[in-house]
Amino acid sequence: MGIEDIYTQIIAEKSRSIANRHHLDAPTDVVAGKNPTCGDEITLEIDRDSSTIKDISFVGSGCAISQASTSMMIDLVRGKTIPEARRAIEEFHAMITEGELTDETMATLQDACALSGVSHMPARVKCAVLPWHTLAHALDEAEGKNAPSTH
């Protein structure tokens, strides 16, 4: 695998894209993610109800892989149900850590499959998974908030 298979045209484009890089008017959740060793920083802003991610955006800075991954994840999960978003997170994680690129993965992740080559770059895995971990964390927190009180 050559470096041009990692830094593909779509990664270059998505890393520079400003389409998803903005604040939401009234986010229900604002969650920050950070890679302390390399300084990638993103904050996801989510507008959701109990079942669906109605809108999602981000602000932040970092390497091309973290920024492209964030933008592609947002394209993928916007409008999706929370279980669908969780499944995408799991698929992405499996693709990056195990290098699996099945038909099912491609159907689920679509453009985000462009990051599959990162599985060959162990030092960059954390850059690619940052937004997905951050989203998972946001959904976990949201579930905690939504859970009926037992007290």
Binding site: G2, I3, I6, Y7, T37, C38, G39, D40, G62, C63, A64, I65, M121, A123, R124, C127
Partner: peptide, 22 residues
């Protein structure tokens, strides 16, 4: 416009070893 970690990865593909980060 290029983050230093991307610089380091691109150089690594040419077996050029540098450090990036803080």
């Amino acid at each position: 416009d290029v983050h230093s970690h991307d610089i380091a990865s691109i150089l690594a593909a040419d077996n050029v070893c540098i450090r990036a980060g803080h």
